[in-house]
Design a protein around this nucleic acid. Structure first.
Lengths: 223, 223
DNA sequence: GTCTATAGTCGGATAGAC
DNA sequence: GTCTATCCGACTATAGAC
């Protein structure tokens, strides 16, 4: 479970603990104990508790990069190649969002990141810059590009950007409000059946949202 | 600015501070100083720091109740009266969501609640029960009722509920990811122009999402 | 590089005067 | 009810041995 070198052990433990509790909710003693390193190792490797937290942010960027990198690169390539039709853009967008739903929501590891990310959204620290530049901005750029082609507008058009945010909100809500959703639906956790139901609804919404922009063609499977 | 009695002063100060920082990020000394009460008053009135935090949750429920109560009651009345058409239900839903956008996002005070609420979603404590029973469940019930009528299904239908969550997610994202949205759009804060743009996009999405369910009639103004 | 030991600070809670 | 004074545990950071 725990990595060999103390540095990695500390980062991985910190990812868990800072995610579960917040920065202030975790003590350096707790971190050292769980990571099975000496308390002084935090100062040695990271300078301070804050330094460790920033290292965790960079770790998140790396993880997300491994996770999304290949997919984003593929889409970016299609965008650069130009001459994507509305239909092709729509299908690429659907694939990307399906990936978020079936993977991001499913993996328990991603829950760790996501809590840290959303806390940084609510109360940004220095770590937010790392996260934003590391993967938020690039991801948004790809989504802007796809939606811009679907609706036939420019990538920096306000409507395009708001459309992207609102669409991502439909998925994020399942990460951000898990407690009330799970309580209301009597779900203890997300499983393949749950995720399939969520996927269907989101895909159906997407079809509706862009039905005017495309030519009435509904290619995404909604059930 | 500060209320007369120490009890109220403490609750209002705590609402601010627990919202801005988290529970762990705020000390009792900070609370007492800002509320201009003695440190011992926290124990006297609330028993402990946790007790004060729970009192804050109840305060949030009260505030939200004053805010949403009349509107929810009106809609609930329509639902109970029965024989709402799809079109009427859709219009009631639009009105409710427009209210969330133009009011909830606009008021700086609501930002205080919202941070506490979302932190409780991510890491529920005893306070979550208060919030959930206090207004989340009732609000969801109303939304389930409206959407159920729009799509012609039962209120406890899974698809209906997921549809409601996904729709609310479109709005919540502007509360939950304010940092990246504001940074991307170069917005320093939400103002009437911003909110109008958001409202248009959400209403347009809503029209699309429910375009199959209703009879092709688009009554909501999207611009 | 890794550890122990501890300095120095700040946390929540509370006893007891008024 | 309000306040001062204080307890005592927990915190981060760090000095210095090995």
């Amino acid at each position: 479970m725990l990595a060999d070198d103390p540095r990695t052990r500390l980062i991985e433990t910190a990812l868990d603990l800072f995610g579960q509790y917040s920065f202030d909710g975790v003590s350096t003693r707790m971190l050292a104990e769980r990571a099975e390193v000496n308390l002084a190792a935090i100062k040695y490797y990271f300078g301070s508790k804050e330094g460790l937290y920033l290292a965790v942010a960079e770790q998140i960027v790396q993880h997300v990069g491994q996770f999304l990198g290949p997919r984003m690169a593929k889409v970016q390539e299609s965008l650069d190649g130009d001459e994507l039709t509305k239909e092709e853009s729509f299908n690429l967008l659907c694939e990307l969002l399906e990936f978020f739903i079936t993977r991001l929501l499913a993996l328990p590891e991603t829950g760790k990141w996501l809590k840290i990310i959303f806390r940084e959204q609510l109360c940004p620290t220095q770590a937010f810059d790392i996260l934003f530049d590391g993967f938020m901005r690039p991801l948004d750029q790809v989504l802007f590009g796809l939606v811009a082609r679907i609706v036939g507008r420019n990538e920096d058009d306000l409507e395009v950007r708001l459309r992207v945010f609102s669409i991502m909100g439909q998925i994020q809500v399942f990460n951000v409000s898990p407690s009330s959703i799970k309580r209301t639906l009597n779900w203890d956790q997300y499983n393949p059946d749950n995720l399939e139901a969520i996927r269907c609804v989101i895909m159906d919404n997407l079809n509706g949202i862009f039905s005017m922009s495309r030519n009435g063609v509904c290619s995404a499977q909604t059930r």
